[in-house]
Write a protein that binds this DNA or RNA. Structure first.
Lengths: 212, 212, 212, 212
DNA sequence: GATGAATGAGCATTCATTCAT
DNA sequence: CATGAATGAATGCTCATTCAT
């Protein structure tokens, strides 16, 4: 019998990375079941009772591991965020020129969203909540860590005349804005085709948008 | 003494349009003061007591006009959404060719967000809530009404060979994705320059991204 | 049929004074039934559910009138404290010389405790809690208002040579310490005779303790 | 280097007496650190987690030694109570006539409170809790053991005509009431001078209050 | 004896909504 | 139409206690 494929086993991998070791089983269970809870009703509207029932853990265990409901959401957010960062880093570090960086970035992004749609939807939903909560600084650090190397390489290309002379703070929106917008639409059920199906077109449009 | 200008009087205009007549004064007061309440803490976390205190209206009046809290949020959402639609329609209907449509659409969008940042932030925040609530169909109708004419003209240009052969469901993301992404960043305090300052660059990049 | 006598009707009078008017009925009901709840288990251990059940009011009404559990305790404390102050003031203001003041003070005190034992027990129990809570300043003001006139008259007598040369901060303890100590013992069930039965002896001992 | 003096080393002595031997080190640590925990927030509001953190012992150790939280409070109470009893007994047993007994009793009492204010505050706070709990009988026995010899000697003096004809149950209040009242006020921060400073005045007033 | 992760009953408090005036 | 006191279900969270290691 073959192992299950697709988003479930991929999700398990994300939670394993977030709570490694045999000890992390109950913590993992909470994280895994919190995802549908939060996605179904929003972080605020989801109740600890929801999390408890679906995860099969006790209230005390949830509070033992995460402190409070926001703590569960933050842990889930960073588990997803970090996995996404790894996926992007792996692909963008393997290539050299600016165009390839843009293509790999956009492609890695839409592939990740396509592979883990529930987690992607949660990241969109939880981002502002996390940014304004007690882990806001942690988020900003990790955003910096994710995008700084990429920004540096693109800035280099601007100096080399390969990219248009664009304000640095505008580039991220031009590169990932289209992909992000399409992904939001797809996750909300307003678009049919998987984002990965348009990876090439989105990457090409992004590159044309910023190239000299 | 001249009247105050800028976002406050512009907001008043939005609320006047949403609740015309002398009778609409209390309704207007609730809408106007609900905006900071919802933006400060989120729709779910804002309380009727917050709305009551800031608006100076009674609990009964709020329920009389809006039915419930979600009703206030929906009314505020559509007031903002409709104003944005009017702004876009006014500018895009005045031009003929595809490139001009794209430029006017992007420009109208970022200008509107720049002029009414609180309302824009609320629209981003409330969109999913409204889409999943009892007014979801109304939202889908109005989205259709807003974008159908524009989509039609762009689709025409695709057939005329002026635009790249792109899937119809991808075009909106390519056209407005960059602007939307930058606006989100600006509203969240992660970007410095007003979106309107980059209207030209965003419009140009959008056009290059989809042109043949 | 004659009216009921003794502590119950006397208590009702206290609560009437604390929440006058027809409007105050539900507030009064909460106060009246909070007394046995707090006395039975302590303020901390008494639950809102206890108060709700015994008073027959809703949770919302309790919070509407008192804000929180500590608010109920504080309101009850001041209702009792103020009644006790009135009882003391009435009797001490009616006499002239120092010995009579001491006698009336001690007598009024033990009579009040004997007449309202439940309330007296609560005052002993709640005093430190109130003093350390948000109403601590209010308590200190009212203590000052109660004892300042009496202290002034005793200090006058010290100057006149009728009283021993005693430190001002020691006098209250010498005057009321014995009565207070006996009352505590009686309220705790460690003493048999009602404090009022020893009013004369306690007053006489107090006067001998401080007289020149 | 000389040993530290004053209330800390005196407290250590109390805890050593309560938990002698090498085995009693962890028990002693819990008792010593429970005192500030209970004083800061009250017995009910202090948590096992507070005790655990401050004492550096494990939850299991606390339960091993004391059974439950009330057990810690009771053990601490009796450690203090017994030390106070020893201090009183040592001084009152050394004298013969009634006046000397009263003077030594009052003096021993205020000296003890002055030397161990934290413990004294705790005794006032915990007394009712202990009296109503499962150790109530133990407390009543020890109170009897402490005061019976003293009461007997004073009763003898009443018969000898040295003391006023006073009800037996009133005498303890007349003797210690003033001292107790002043000590409570000092411990609560409402009085400036240490009780020991007024030992003579308090003892004299007590004696005058009860002497024939 | 010692440990501390896990438990879950129990609590204070909030807040959308109603409805008598 | 307008009001705001009253309601009580629902929720996040705490914490004493247990027990497997």
């Amino acid at each position: 019998m073959s192992k299950p494929r697709g988003s479930t086993s991929r999700l398990n991998q994300v939670f394993k990375l977030a709570s490694p070791g045999e000890r992390g089983a109950s913590r993992r269970a909470v994280l895994a079941h919190a995802l549908p809870c939060f996605n179904a009703r929003g972080i605020e509207a989801a109740t600890i009772e929801d999390l408890r029932q679906r995860s099969g853990q006790s209230v005390g265990t949830i509070y033992h591991h995460f402190g409070n409901k926001e703590g569960v959401a933050a842990a889930l957010f960073f588990a997803g965020f970090d996995d996404q960062s790894r996926a992007i880093a792996t692909r963008t570090e393997a290539v050299a020129d600016a165009q390839a960086v843009v293509v790999e970035l956009v492609t890695a992004y839409v592939d990740w969203v396509t592979a883990l749609p529930e987690l992607a939807a949660f990241l969109f939903m939880a981002r502002e909540t996390v940014a304004q909560g007690p882990h806001g600084d942690a988020l900003r650090e990790r955003l910096e860590a994710r995008y700084a190397p990429i920004d540096a390489r693109l800035a280099e290309s601007v100096r080399a005349g390969l990219l248009a002379e664009l304000p640095a703070e505008l580039i991220p929106a031009l590169v990932l804005g289209g992909a992000e917008s399409y992904c939001r639409g797809w996750l909300a059920g307003r678009r049919e085709a998987k984002p990965a199906a348009y990876a090439g077109l989105l990457a090409e449009a992004a590159w044309r948008g910023i190239s000299a």
